[in-house]
Design a protein around this nucleic acid. Structure first.
Length: 460
DNA sequence: TGAAATGTTGGGGCG
DNA sequence: ACGCCCCAACATTTC
């Protein structure tokens, strides 16, 4: 029995952790290690970095209760392991698998030089497990989800260890940098687990009806916990599966299946990123790669700051900037507005969201943006353009969401709140619409059409 | 996991 | 009673 390093990457939890269980199983000494890898951290720190740092602090506290400690190191993983394996004599590095382009490359390099074992992963099933019979990946969601659901149900989650072997005090050198807290998202494993239970025992019953209502917390608000693995996706899937199989009532069942489908969208985008890593740079659809995007910096800035003159878009963008999170429906509305109404490159939006979302995940974020832009796999058709005013009336009928995030409009009545500028009697400290929707719509249709035609001509 | 434009239908007002 | 028009309501097509 030797010494192992539990290399924590995006599995900041003690429950249902295959990499931790493997390390404990193989070794008498287990060193929990997190590497602050400059390649994965923004300067200045993005909101998700703050969430991560908070979660690390809380993981350290949880580890202390078990008799262990969290070891933190700064630097490139390859350099850190060079020193640390000498220092400790570790003969095993156990880690949760990861499938992002960077993670795959990193782990391949580490695996060449060190005894790295990877297990589990940030998805229920690894991307290579869900492919068509000819071995090629699915690019359409529905058949993907059918294949996903046909796999054996996830089994019982692993328990958290009762206690852990102590870590030599001399290894505790680098500290965890200071970070700000994230409102509404306490960064600890207990909170993550409670949130899942709370949601599955209550809100999920109304999920289908309430998940799109902007002013209501009808969604699980659980994505940051999956992003950093404070909650095991495997355990969550197991919980919802067993609830579905126990549920007789069709409506209740439907609500839970709807939520499960959202988890499968997440799995779908992980699979897409794993099989088509170029989606991070380019539109997936070749015929939409030459769209002539607008480089209107003023418009981009107005969108980022929530000053477009479209109340629902501005509420969404301010929610993002102020709280580090955005309602899913609001993400679609604001993304459609950027890519279609303003005809600004989806990559600008992708980057902005990554900088501000505490749940910012390359796979889901890229997938969502390419879906909205119409450039992705199984994306919304390019001509499906949201009308921000209709979306606003439909999903925030009383304007509660708008008033919450756009205080300048707090005195405006529900009749006027979606289009305040249309009432000339209102005294407003609020900008007029940055663009007329029908004008923006026509411009986007023309630009997308032009790209498609150019592609057809060139490939003929 | 749209929306706009266009087409069709049918009831009612009205000459 | 009848045809005509208007237009809401719904359906289909198109972007």
């Amino acid at each position: 029995m030797g010494i192992s390093i539990w290399w924590i990457r995006r599995d900041l939890r003690l429950h249902d952790n295959a990499a931790l269980a493997h390390a404990l199983n193989k070794s008498t000494v287990v060193i929990p290690l997190f590497i602050l890898d400059p390649a994965l951290l923004s300067t200045p720190p993005a909101n998700r970095d703050h969430f991560l740092l908070n979660a690390l602090r809380s993981l350290d506290a949880d580890l202390r209760k078990k008799g262990s400690r969290l070891i933190v190191r700064n630097g490139r993983p390859i350099d850190v392991f060079g020193k640390l394996t000498d220092e400790t004599g570790a003969d095993l590095i156990s880690a949760e698998a990861d499938f992002s382009p960077y993670a795959k490359k990193r782990d391949a390099e580490i695996g060449e030089l060190f005894p790295l074992v990877t297990l589990g992963g940030p998805t229920v099933y690894p991307p290579q497990a869900i492919v068509k019979t000819d071995g090629t990946p699915y690019t359409i969601y529905t058949p993907f989800s059918r294949a996903w659901k046909s796999l054996p149900e996830p089994g019982q989650p692993l328990a958290a260890p009762d206690c852990m072997p102590p870590v030599p005090e001399s290894l505790v050198t680098d500290g965890i940098p200071a970070s700000k807290t994230c409102d509404g998202f306490p960064a600890n494993e207990m909170a993550a687990r409670e949130r899942l239970e709370q949601f599955l025992s209550c809100a999920v019953f109304q999920y289908k009806d309430t998940r799109n209502i902007l002013a209501q917390d009808g969604t699980a608000r659980i994505s940051p916990y999956f992003k950093f693995g404070l909650l095991s996706i495997h355990e969550a899937a197991h919980r919802v599966f067993s609830l579905i199989s126990k549920t007789e009532n069709q409506a209740e069942r439907g609500n839970r299946v709807t939520w499960l489908n959202e988890l499968i969208w997440r799995e779908f985008y992980f699979s897409i990123l794993s099989h088509f890593p170029d989606v991070t740079r380019e539109s997936y659809r070749k015929n939409l790669r030459s769209i002539c995007w607008s480089d209107d910096q003023k418009a981009l800035h107005a969108w980022q700051e929530g000053l477009t003159g479209y109340p629902v878009v501005d509420a969404a963008m301010r929610q993002l900037k102020q709280s580090g999170w955005m309602h899913n429906r609001a993400r679609m509305i604001s993304a459609s507005f950027l890519t279609k109404d303003l005809l600004i490159d989806w990559r600008e939006g992708e980057q902005w969201f990554m900088q501000h979302l505490i749940d910012g995940d390359l796979a889901s974020n890229n997938g969502g943006w390419q879906w909205t832009a119409g450039t992705g796999t199984d994306a919304a058709p390019y001509f499906r353009i949201f009308n921000p005013i209709l979306q606003s009336k439909k999903f925030d009928p009383q304007g509660e969401y708008i008033r919450r995030w756009v205080p300048e409009l707090s005195h405006v009545s529900s009749d006027d709140i979606h289009t305040p500028r249309e009432n000339p009697d209102l005294k407003l400290d609020y900008p007029p619409p940055i663009i007329d929707h029908s004008v923006g719509r026509e411009r986007a249709l023309a630009a997308y059409q032009a790209a498609r035609l150019a592609y057809e001509d060139q490939s003929r």
